[in-house]
Design a protein around this nucleic acid. Structure first.
Lengths: 135, 135
DNA sequence: GGATACTTGACTAATTTAGTCGGGTATATA
DNA sequence: TATATACCCGACTAAATTAGTCAAGTATCC
């Protein structure tokens, strides 16, 4: 089990932003240099963060991105949602109450994975950006 | 984030075993049929479970595998360890106290992933096979 | 001796990941 | 108004991982 880099980089980049003046746009170029993340990869990530309203963009020179809320109000769970990385630990179709693998019953471990998902999401639900930079 | 099939199948197969007479060897063929998992894939999985002493094997006809402990004494964390799937959510080198990405300092989110790992492993630490089949 | 069932290593197709590439468009500032 | 800055966006790709299969055993029971 492993998180993908997009999610990790998203959290890193946002934590980076959160430690600066929240009113001044921060360019991806700067984040790229500070965090050693490719600029074009950051662009992909921020596109999603923007769609999900976690940041807003300021175009043009001296532009960049601004957090759209206070950092203590941005939960990590939102960030993962923005990147479609809401924890789905397995392949069972969770919505169909019967039939995981095309069979007629739930698979024997079905409820376990449901519980695990809840457990992990709860962790992200209880952490915000501000928590990260208080160190 | 997603668990791989090996770990999932391992848990399914062991849960399957746990719901039968614990003293009679159970063949992989039977598990394969009941759980719709390829026999040869199960063989790979059980090799690891055996090395880790979670099951023991009985060769020859009427042979199969037997749980080496009571099912209420087999924690899910052991199963994941057996398959080398101990949760490592990220790429940072956790052991080197300084330097995640070849840089001189810990990355900004380093401690977060440590905490997450603990959180997930705790979940598996507190679940055993018996818990799974009590439904 | 034959059937059953475990044992083991090597190989492979498909998918996913982690990016890169290249061409935009909008805006500030000189 | 020119130019540089910086966001915007779709398409592509190399590398790694996953999820298996294949083939050839060995041990034991009946």
């Amino acid at each position: 089990m492993r998180l993908n880099t997009k999610s990790r980089y998203a959290v890193m980049a946002l934590a980076d932003m959160a430690s600066f003046n929240p009113n001044k746009p921060i360019s991806l170029r700067d984040i790229s240099l500070r965090q050693s993340i490719s600029l074009q990869y950051l662009e992909q990530i921020f596109l999603k963060l923007k769609k999900y309203n976690i940041v807003r963009s300021v175009r043009g020179s001296n532009g960049g991105y601004v957090l759209s809320k206070n950092s203590n109000n941005i939960k990590l769970s939102e960030i993962f949602s923005a990147l479609n990385e809401n924890v789905k630990t397995i392949g069972c179709d969770k919505n169909s109450k019967k039939g995981c693998n095309g069979r007629s019953t739930k698979c024997i471990t079905h409820d376990l994975w449901d519980e695990l998902d809840l457990h992990i999401n709860a962790f992200f639900e209880n952490k915000n950006l501000e928590d990260l930079i208080r160190n």
